[in-house]
Design a protein around this nucleic acid. Structure first.
Lengths: 214, 214
DNA sequence: ATTTATACAGAACATACGTGCGCAAACCGC
DNA sequence: GCGGTTTGCGCACGTATGTTCTGTATAAAT
């Protein structure tokens, strides 16, 4: 039972949406009336009832501006997390240490992400993968890698590790085996890297990857 | 000049915030009155004026519910896009065709994603990668793959392709070469699959990948 | 031809809701 | 104490705003 909306109903719907973008409260019946060139409030009410019946919005009776958009029209007022994005990381540099305290809210580029990507982690930040050195089997050029700052990785976790001798950051699975760190590519075809523990520093734990094609 | 808010003003502010979380419209003066155990509407008005003067909110005079929170209290209204998530895809089934029209707003699981992942694409939907058949070099078990429905892929694009003879959906780069489709794994170690064009149907173009570790 | 459903118009009604006024209690420096 | 400001109270007024009733027009259904 997919009802097609009349032109007027579409108009009303987009009007409400636009109104909510400009103000922070819903429009009144009369706002909609003048905004959509409707000659009577009862017509607005009539169409609002239809929109409500078909699940496009919800109305609170007897309440002024008691309109709530539903479904795809619903404005998402929701918990998401702004994470700083470190860009322009030179290929051979360690990641600059970034925490809540020292990242500049004004100058740093940020991205708002759904909470589920960050849940339970602290100070998550993003790094845009550039060039080949950071690429692993399931991470490729252009990916946005989400990292949780840490210096102590648990064996098996994928981490961003700064390898002093190579002067580079790499993304690998981390294993500390009596004094030596084994950095294991996820790609089984690639050989692991062995580094003395004091020549490698863990900079973050990979908590997510986001790739946008095009 | 940081004015310290009175206990009552704090209470009002948090009440408005909570109210906005539950409803999709701001509270009235009287809502605040009862919600904060205040005995008179004028007291609410008095404190609202102070909160407005100190920049915590904005009021539209003569407008019911004309309250807008500002600053850190401001609810971030972000344009997120709800995409339906197809779960429980049996390993050997084609993806069910899902469009704006036929996906059930009530029953389908959705995920709210930042717009940049979906910009310019239509009817994007997500598929949770399960098992091995869909895995490619840069996509692994558990990833959420974002697809734009299409049946006509451009050479080189990564697509979800239904291979009739194998009865499975696979994610590969698509190349149509005089009557034969070459499905090329991103992993150069893996061999391409050649399929007659009439035995393969493109179901969607990969527009993004999201991986959440843990 | 009659009925039924949809869509709109105009106006009146009822209440939801912001605002203003007078006054009291509490607080504050002197 | 005393004046002043801040904060709170109760109430009433008036507008803002949802609701409803009556009526019309059109098209499809019977």
């Amino acid at each position: 039972m997919v009802k097609k909306l009349s032109e007027r109903q579409e108009h009303i719907l987009t009007y409400i949406k636009d109104f909510l973008d400009e103000h922070s409260y819903p429009p009144t019946v009369r706002d909609i009336q003048t905004g959509c060139n409707i000659s009577s409030t009862s017509v607005v009410d009539y169409n609002l009832r239809i929109l409500q019946r078909d699940g496009y919005l919800k109305r609170e009776t007897e309440v002024s501006r008691g309109i709530e958009l539903l479904g795809s029209n619903k404005p998402k007022i929701q918990d998401f997390v702004s994470v700083p994005i470190l860009s322009n990381i030179a290929a051979g540099d360690p990641l600059p240490v970034t925490t809540q305290d020292n990242w500049n809210h004004e100058n740093t580029e940020t991205l708002d992400l759904p909470t589920f990507l960050v849940d339970g982690k602290d100070d998550v930040f993003g790094v845009r993968v550039k060039g080949q050195s950071m690429i692993d089997a399931f991470i490729t050029d252009g990916d946005l890698v989400l990292l949780e700052p840490t210096t102590n990785a648990v064996n098996g976790e994928m981490v961003a590790a700064w390898i002093q001798d190579n002067q580079e950051v790499t993304l690998k699975h981390f294993y500390l085996e009596n004094g030596t760190v084994r950095l294991q590519p996820a790609n089984p075809m690639m050989d692991p890297i062995y580094v003395p523990a004091d020549k490698v520093s863990v900079q973050g734990r990979v908590v997510g990857v986001i790739r946008s094609v095009n």
